[in-house]
Amino acid sequence: MAGKKISAQFKEGILTNNPVFVQLLGMCSTLAITTTVTNALGMGLSVTAVLICSNILISALRKIIPNQIRIASYIVIISGFVTVVEMLMKAYTPELSKSLGLFIPLIVVNCIILARAEAFASKNAVLPSIIDGVAMGIGYTVALILLAFIRELFGSGTLLGYSVFGDSYQPVSMLVSPAGAFITLGFIIAAVQKILLRKKDRDFRKQHESGDGSDD
């Protein structure tokens, strides 16, 4: 039972309720830093770390934080963790920290974290909140990597910095430019909507058929 619930939470985080593709949260960082897969991975992991930590603390404190000032308290908790992540990255991964630049401190205003705090961690116990943080974090990271994979592979012909197509490949540098970010994300979201629409269609039909079956 518990196992089923956990897998449902993961499915929700990664596909049916993906923070980027379905909930459309955290768009700024998604569009800005997905020029390379390395950046996407770094950003995804930092957001996941902050998300898990803030979910734990917020759900542990959910009975203590007064309702009126909850948003302000959440922001303080989140920005505390973001500062920790920022300092750690500056110390141990200076290059990544430089290429992500402004977008690490801006994790504070990444709507995913505040949205999960408000919608999930403030209403649930610590353990489910951790799982929610992991699931949503993975969903976010997967979305970033998918977008970055397309943009880096075709936009500069490399993956994780290694050349893939060889020297004769003429990179589609439009993909690495800001315009490419918007357009690629648009196409990916369209594909996800298509999949979800088809699934809904199939579920609907199945429900209909089983209903007919019981009538007979």
């Binding site: 918007f182 357009i183 648009g186 979201i189 909507q193």
Partner: peptide, 23 residues
């Protein structure tokens, strides 16, 4: 637009085109 593009996807593509103009 096609069903899958309705809403946000087509808006993002349009934003991409404006971004191209701005570039």
């Amino acid at each position: 637009p096609p069903k899958a593009f309705r809403g946000i996807p087509i808006a993002l593509v349009a934003a991409g085109l404006i971004a191209m103009a701005f570039s």
